[in-house]
């Protein structure tokens, strides 16, 4: 992440941050038994992907892609469009997942994965 002169290049910093967020999200998603926490881990994972997509769209010295007089350099609008869609689909996924969690809580009285598995298979 840090080059030999000791300064952090932006690209390394962003990619390193993306990887860290992805790994944390994945770990929370897989390792934690609590269903709400799993969904939050999924959210962290998603935001890392947003960052991964948006970061290459930035052009040094560019401005946001809103056409105006006197501006010649714009950042790339395409990743923004894709990630807008991804955010909205992500919140739809979250809503559906949370509804499932509420239903599971109604049925089993718990939102811990272990306890649910125990109740399904008491032997």
């Amino acid at each position: 992440m840090i080059d030999l002169t000791g300064t952090i290049e932006p690209v390394r910093a962003i990619h390193g941050g993306v990887v860290v967020l992805m790994v944390v999200g994945l770990y929370v998603l897989v390792a934690r038994g609590n269903l709400i926490k799993k969904l939050i881990g999924l959210g962290v994972f998603q935001t890392s992907v947003y960052l991964l997509y948006i970061a290459p769209g930035k052009i040094a010295g560019g401005s946001p892609p809103i056409i105006a007089d006197g501006i010649v350099t714009y950042s790339n609008p395409l990743p923004h469009v894709l990630i807008l869609t991804a955010i909205v689909v992500g919140v739809a996924t979250l809503a559906l997942g949370l509804a499932l969690v509420v239903r599971i809580h109604e049925e089993y009285g718990t939102i811990e994965e272990d306890e649910i598995l125990d109740r399904d298979d008491p032997a």
Binding site: I54, G57, L84, I87, L98, V101
Partner: peptide, 26 residues
């Protein structure tokens, strides 16, 4: 990173709606 539209969406949807949904579930 110049993504103003995405930033607005993330602030309203990610910090707003998601938090409300999670609190409702809690």
């Amino acid at each position: 990173l110049d993504a103003v539209d995405v930033s607005m969406t993330e602030a309203s949807v990610g910090a707003g709606i998601s938090t409300v949904l999670l609190l409702g579930t809690l």
